[in-house]
């Protein structure tokens, strides 16, 4: 009897711990919501009946060119994703279905990027961009990420599972190599594209260091870099406005995450276990 008693107590303690951790994990975001939707004098003390306001958002919007930052981030993320899809599809297909000379060495060299990410090589990559005259352009921010080892790897794994018979059947029907890729392989890999797309978009929406280094004007800066400048103590805006700006910056991704929570979690899982 005491055995089940302690076990039940243990179970309750565990549930309490799990929930406490969840509250702790949400607290920073909840706090940001509190500060953003209340007048500045309520930023540091909590009254349940404090008046709600949207003025922090309007002020944040007017202090920094957020509309432009949004546009830049949107263009950047779209550009990167489009090129990643094309390049990784072609390369993944090559690794999965063609026994070309040097395939294993080439694959090992590709995987090197998983360890040596472009973030580490900012100094040399900046020089390269200067030589290509791509400093302070959106192409320049995206270019080191167009060819993604992670994407190539994921698509190679997926393409390898496509039955050879389907491939051959399409060839017998008279499809060329690229047609086979487009008609047979790409449709079958749709879940992988979704998973990789979500991971890539959230990565580049949030990426900071390289965009900071390579951009120097409002016309190219993505949201993260704009937010860092906006939130710097020198900018002289108060907590409530910073919270509002921060929420605006994370807003689209956060809303997408809350709406498609299941897909997000499954995509990260799918991408992780391959």
């Amino acid at each position: 009897m005491t055995g089940t008693g302690t076990r039940r107590l243990g179970r309750w303690l565990e549930i309490a711990a799990a929930w406490l951790l969840a509250v702790l994990w949400l607290a920073p975001l909840l706090y940001a919501f509190w500060a953003a939707f209340h007048p500045p004098q309520f930023a540091t003390h909590f009254e349940p009946l404090a008046p709600l306001t949207l003025s922090n958002f309007t002020r944040a919007w007017s202090v920094a060119p957020f509309a432009r930052y949004f546009l830049n981030t949107f263009m950047l993320v779209t550009l990167i994703l489009a090129l990643q899809f094309v390049l990784c599809t072609l390369a993944g297909f090559a690794f999965a279905r063609f026994a070309f000379a040097g395939r294993n060495i080439a694959f090992a060299l590709v995987l090197m990027q998983l360890m040596v990410m472009p973030e580490v090589l900012i100094v040399e990559n900046y020089r390269t961009m200067a030589r290509l005259d791509l400093v302070d352009t959106i192409t320049g921010i995206g270019m080191p990420y167009f060819a993604s080892a992670f994407g190539i790897f994921l698509l190679r794994q997926t393409f390898k599972t496509v039955p050879k018979e389907l491939d051959e059947a399409a060839r017998v029907e008279g499809c060329g190599m690229l047609q086979v890729l487009w008609r047979v392989y790409v449709p079958l890999a749709r879940p992988t594209y979704l998973a990789y797309g979500l991971v890539s978009v959230s990565y580049h929406w949030n990426n900071f260091l390289w965009p900071l280094v390579i951009t120097s004007s409002v016309e190219t800066r993505p949201l993260t870099v704009g937010l860092a400048i906006f939130g710097a103590p020198e900018s002289g805006v108060d907590w409530s406005v910073i919270s509002a700006g921060t929420l605006m910056a994370v807003g689209p991704l956060l809303v997408a995450f809350l709406l498609f929570q299941r897909q997000f979690v499954q995509s990260f899982m799918h991408a992780g276990i391959k």
Partner: peptide, 24 residues
């Protein structure tokens, strides 16, 4: 297979070399 394989790989390989291997 050699030709196709390398041709398909080429665009990604050029960028990987330019922004990972060369800078290393």
């Amino acid at each position: 297979a050699h030709v196709y394989g390398w041709l398909l790989l080429l665009p990604a390989a050029v960028l990987l070399v330019a922004f990972t291997h060369y800078p290393t």
